[in-house]
């Protein structure tokens, strides 16, 4: 990024339109197609004005499009640069580029910009919230700003470096993702005994001997009951015909039964 090309006013508009309203018109048919068109409208207006090809370019941008929201600015940047240079001649290039990039970007972006931050921030914020502390919520807002910064730089990168950037960036993001997975799984591991409330209720009393199942379980492994519940949920999710809604309902039934059968307190 040594030769810094300034983004034009139109480019900035495109970015901000995506940032604020990229998924506003999300629909089952063309998904983010409407939002994409909305975002590049200033570009179309600037390049094609009132010419006949304007509608052609517009239809081209209204097509099916769906990728990770945070990664899309890269594609918008590449698209802007190409159309500014080649105009309507690049119509097929643009269409191919969009469909070619949206798939891989969706996969990596959903992991890196949604699953991982949601896991890490969600774990910390929920854990603190359960203790009655709202401070963790600041992390959501901080992440909002971080993400905005990254999205802005993505647009610039896409605009300046074009398609050649995609491979190197993809590789870099992949490395970050696999490192971030380590952080994510460590946090989840810590979360299991911290936030799941499952305490064995069973107590056995005969003569002077008192045995509490929970005390015994603690001898084996603290957090045994929460770990078992996670294992059950994990196993259930892997069964055929199971989805998260069904497992939710099953767990509610399990909870009610476990209480009334005096397994869990």
């Amino acid at each position: 990024m040594s030769n810094k090309v300034e983004l034009s006013k139109t480019n900035k508009k495109t970015f901000w339109r995506w940032y604020f309203f990229g998924q506003a018109g999300w629909n089952y048919e063309k998904m983010q197609g409407l939002g994409y068109y909305y975002s590049v409208y200033p570009l179309i207006k600037q390049i094609y004005g009132k010419t006949d090809v304007a509608a052609e370019a517009a239809i081209n941008e209204l097509q099916f499009f769906n990728t990770n929201n945070s990664m899309a600015p890269i594609i918008l940047g590449v698209d802007s640069a190409i159309q500014e240079k080649q105009g309507i001649a690049a119509k097929d290039t643009v269409a191919g580029l969009k469909t070619g990039m949206m798939g891989p970007f969706a996969g990596i972006g959903d992991t890196l910009f949604a699953v991982i931050p949601n896991t890490i921030i969600g774990s910390i914020a929920s854990y603190m919230a359960l203790k009655g502390n709202p401070i963790g919520l600041i992390l959501w807002i901080a992440y909002g700003f971080l993400r905005l910064g990254i999205m802005r730089s993505f647009f610039g990168m896409g605009y300046r470096e074009g398609v050649k950037l995609i491979d190197s960036l993809g590789n870099r993001l992949k490395k970050i993702t696999s490192a971030a997975n380590i952080l994510g799984l460590t946090v989840i591991g810590a979360l299991i005994p911290s936030v799941i409330t499952a305490v064995f209720a069973y107590k056995y009393k005969q003569g002077g001997v008192k045995i509490s199942l929970q005390d015994m379980a603690d001898q084996i492994m603290p957090g045994l009951a929460p770990a078992l519940v996670v294992l059950l949920a994990y196993w259930l999710l892997g069964r055929k015909k199971m989805n998260s809604t069904r497992v939710t309902l099953i767990l509610i039934v399990v909870g009610i039964l476990a209480y009334n059968l005096k397994i869990f307190a």
């Binding site: 929460p226 996670v230 998260s244």
Partner: peptide, 18 residues
């Protein structure tokens, strides 16, 4: 029973992630 259920439900979110 519902209270106990509320206590174990977070296991689902964790399992989905795993």
């Amino acid at each position: 029973g519902l209270k106990t259920a509320g206590g174990i439900l977070p296991a689902l979110g964790i399992a989905i992630l795993l």
